[in-house]
Design a protein around this nucleic acid. Structure first.
Lengths: 265, 265
DNA sequence: GGCTATGTCTCATTTAGTGAGATGAAGTCA
DNA sequence: TGACTTCATCTCACTAAATGAGACATAGCC
């Protein structure tokens, strides 16, 4: 199967080839990809494949698996990824705060940012209580609309932009998550009215519930969202109020710290 | 200044150019890089630079900063990086165990893997007690020789390979960390004799101490190392014994789980 | 020791990326 | 508002540099 039929792939072909290789490798998970995986999915010749594999290995973007003939993603990606997740310095600011929240309340707390039509998880801190979540770890990506953090992010975008995103995601939201656009819009209203998001109930994870609040810059644009997730049975009114309060305090402190850093040259 | 004079950069030039761009961007931290940063450090023309920037942006490897004319690392790197850190599935196996250890003992626990002449941090779980560490987060990299996890990794490599790594790192270890090769070798002996590593005391972080144990596959090769870090004052004999025991149990369980997964096709 | 699949090499071909400079677009500051 | 600076794109000729075909080498495996 082709790698990503929707990618319009205009740049230098070598670059596209290289990225396709990385995507195919990533798709193999911890087992990586084999030569045949590449050759089946790619449109260029074997020597070229090997040339690119070699180049990517030298750059640290790939490494060879202990199993001969298989390739894994290289640790350079991990290093760059760690940097990438720290957009606007948000992650560094959030990490200790998520930890504090998780330790205090025992629930699991998340930092999300917008990534095009998706929400991407920049940081997770699990608490002592067991939890189910759409993302298992840093780097997890969800279509905007799924999960409470999505709502918090969507709510503070321009109406037109939000509309584009939602119509782009509509089919996927319905098919994969059984979430309707109208319900998302209702929750966005709730977010705007009450200052926090609850997420739309879809077909997945029915026994879990969550909360999210946006992280806004001085001009009201969303830098990210902090969210939490817990078993529904834990979400009493009292607990909800307490956790929300805790999250609000941490986010307020973060934004304070951030204003000293952001947008400065 | 040039990006990386030591990298022999042989593959397709476009690929190298692209990777240089990513490295320069990463070097800018959360502020990213500006056009001039690129043009000063690179050897190709401005149109080419823009072409590559465009291509990298389309692939999600870069995104433009809210500040016009600056570029940040893209979230695709975060996603791939998360995958890359899960080599052999180790990270997924380790995460809940690190969390359990951190919650139980309050210290900070780490998962490391070897990355050439470096050790790379695949996962961190901080505990309730404050801690100083060489790596602040996932993706942190240290020259092998620094930190207790390094010792645990080095100890189970072949003698010749270990020698190459150490002589490669020797200068840096001395200059940046005030660590001598002889001391590292002494700690390696300790690791081999007692089954755990303590790390070599260098010039940095004198008030912290740590422990590490290797994660070995069936043939005795190191897949990674689990380590912990704590204030020296917390490292009583009792606490040390308990924590070591806890780590050993978790690692044993991990390896058990892993053997079902590793090297299978 | 043969077998299969991985990885490398050579070389002619020409695609496809490149540079120089001009042009357009987007902010910025007076 | 309008001049100015810097970012970003475009055009086009050029040739460097990536490519493909197929032969060759190497490693693991039975």
């Amino acid at each position: 199967m082709p790698v990503n039929k929707s990618s319009t792939a205009s740049g230098p072909t070598t670059l596209n080839h290289a990225m396709q290789i990385l995507q195919i490798t990533a798709r193999g998970g911890y087992r990586g990809a084999s030569i045949d995986d590449y050759l089946n999915a790619l449109s260029f010749s074997r020597p070229t494949l090997y040339r690119l594999l070699k180049g990517l290995k030298q750059q640290g973007f790939l490494r060879s698996s202990p199993v001969r003939g298989r390739y894994l993603l290289g640790y350079e990606l991990l290093v760059l990824g760690a940097q990438a997740g720290n957009g606007a310095g948000l992650r560094d600011l959030a990490r200790p705060r998520l930890l504090a929240l998780a330790q205090r309340w025992g629930d699991s707390f998340y930092l999300f940012a917008r990534d095009g039509v998706n929400a991407v998880c920049l940081e997770v801190q699990n608490g002592a209580y067991p939890v189910g979540s759409f993302v298992r770890a840093t780097g997890g990506r969800l279509p905007l609309g799924v999960g409470q953090a999505s709502i918090a992010l969507l709510a503070y975008l321009g109406t037109d932009e939000r509309g584009e995103i939602l119509s782009h995601n509509a089919e996927r939201l319905m098919d994969e998550y059984a979430i309707a656009i109208a319900d998302i819009e209702a929750e966005i209203s709730h977010q705007l009215k009450h200052g926090y998001a609850r997420g739309v109930e879809g077909s997945l994870l029915p026994e879990y519930s969550g909360l999210a609040i946006p992280i806004l810059d001085h001009s009201g644009h969303p830098l990210g969202a902090m969210s939490c997730s817990m078993l529904k049975s834990r979400m009493t009114e009292d607990h909800k109020r307490e956790v929300l309060q805790g999250m609000r305090e941490e986010v307020a402190a973060m934004v304070n710290q951030a204003h000293g850093l952001l947008y400065l040259d």
